[in-house]
């Protein structure tokens, strides 16, 4: 291993043992192993309004963060996507990955959007993704990378439409990590996990908040309710 590695780890150990904080080596190892394996939860916020359903909370929070949100039945997703493009005077053309759930959408025979598959190269006006989950706590979408949902679609097109199943919406992030571990395996992760809360923005000029910085200008969420 590198010299710098030994120096840094050596200095840390020296600083810790000088102050008697290092303790028994075995006990320290055990404590670290226990935490990494057990991943204790800490303080998990509860919904302030217990009566509000998690999905409604998700919608409220996502809207507060500047996203537009609509609920749709599985059979109406195609209509909702087309309507969004039409309402914003966008061409009926979408960049989309190989997500099965998106492939199952039945597009209308007339005026269906043209689907361009694969990652975005920066020339797409609109992209369509399917979220892995949503967090009602803050109206946050969770997207995982892969051939199903290439990460470039989340950032390059100006308009990002994201479909999320209502049953995949949890209240807190912790519930989502549990599901992610189940999917990817303990200690493993997809290359990229994107937590997205509203469209991109900047306040770097005189603290004036402007929507649409380097990422999407519009984020439209379709919550599938069955």
């Amino acid at each position: 291993m590198s010299e710098a590695r030994d120096i840094i780890l050596g200095r840390i150990c020296a600083s810790l043992s000088e102050n008697g904080k290092a303790g028994g080596d075995e006990a320290r190892h055990e404590e670290v192993e226990k935490r990494l394996r057990g991943h204790p939860q800490g303080v998990v916020p509860h919904p302030a309004d217990a009566k509000q359903a998690v999905v409604d909370r998700f919608i409220d929070k996502a809207q507060a963060a500047g996203a537009t949100v609509e609920k749709a039945k599985q059979g109406d997703v195609a209509k909702a996507v087309s309507a969004f493009l039409r309402d914003h005077n966008l061409p009926q053309q979408l960049r989309v990955g190989a997500d099965e759930r998106l492939e199952q959408i039945t597009w209308q025979s007339r005026g269906a959007p043209e689907l361009l598959s694969g990652p975005s190269d920066g020339n797409d006006l609109s992209g369509l993704s399917h979220a892995f989950a949503g967090a009602g706590e803050t109206g946050t979408l969770v997207l995982t990378s892969g051939p199903d949902n290439p990460t470039t679609i989340n950032f390059l097109p100006e308009n990002h439409i994201v479909v999320v199943d209502a049953q995949d919406i949890e209240f807190d992030y912790e519930a989502i990590w549990t599901r992610l571990r189940h999917k990817a395996g303990a200690g493993k992760m997809p290359r990229t996990v994107n937590l997205i809360t509203g469209p991109s923005r900047s306040a770097d000029i005189e603290q004036t908040l402007i929507m649409g910085a380097h990422g999407p200008v519009r984020l439209h969420i379709i919550v599938v309710t069955g």
Binding site: T138, S145, T151, M189, R191, T192, V193, A203, G215
Partner: peptide, 23 residues
């Protein structure tokens, strides 16, 4: 900034995988 959550919290792990089309 007083936001409840920043717009993008991104978790990156390793390089792109065999099957990944980007990254």
């Amino acid at each position: 900034t007083g936001q409840e959550m920043s717009v993008y919290t991104t978790l990156s792990t390793g390089p792109r995988r065999k099957e990944d089309p980007d990254g």
